[in-house]
Amino acid sequence: MGKQMVMSVMSKDRPGIVADITGVIYQLQGDLADLNQSVLCDYFTMILIATFDDSVTPEDVVAGFSHIQPETKLEVVVKEMDTPMEIAKAKRVKETYILTAQGKNRSGLVYRIGLFCCQHGINILDLATTLSGDQYTMILQLDLSRVASVDTIRTSLTGYAEESGLTVVLQHEDIFKATSEITLF
C-alpha cells in the first residue's frame, strides 16, 4: 500500500497555504488521506496523512516544501508512520464525552485539567479554549473508554471543580448532538 507519512506544517497565515502544501503532495504523486487544519491568532497549522510510492522518502517531501518560495516560510516536519493504517477503516471512538470548564483566567488551567485527565486515564481527543474578558473557557472532547466508571469521574470532577474554582460540566456527546443538530436519531 505504499509508504504512509504524517506531515505537520506551521506558518504565519496567508492566502494560498493549502494550495502550496497539497501541490507538493500532488507533484510527488502522493495520495492525501486525511488532514486537519486550524488558525489561531493569525498562525496556521495543519496535520496531514498521505501515501506515497515506496521510492519517496520523508526528505523528498521536506525538499518539496522547501522549494515553495512564499513571503512566509513553512515550518515542516515529516515522518513515516510506524504502523500504516487504512484511514477509511480507522477505528473511531464509539462514544465521547464533552467536558467544559470555565473560570477566571490564570496560569496553569489547561495544565491542571490535562493532568486530571492523565491521572484518570482519560484521552483528550480535541481541545479548544477561548478567552473572553477575564473568563477562560475550555472545551474538551474526551474518550472515556478506558475509564471503569463514569460515575467515579463525575465525583472526582466535583472535587476538582471545588478545588480549582472552575465550573466543570461533563456531558455525553449525544446531548449536544440532540440539542444542536436536526438529524433525527
Binding site: 467544559t100 479548544a128 456531558q171 456527546e173 446531548i175 449536544f176 440539542t179 444542536s180
Partner: peptide, 13 residues
Amino acid sequence: MLRSDHILATVEM
C-alpha cells in the same frame, strides 16, 4: 467537533 457556542448554550441550559 461540535461548535463551541452550541456546546456552551447547552451546558448553560
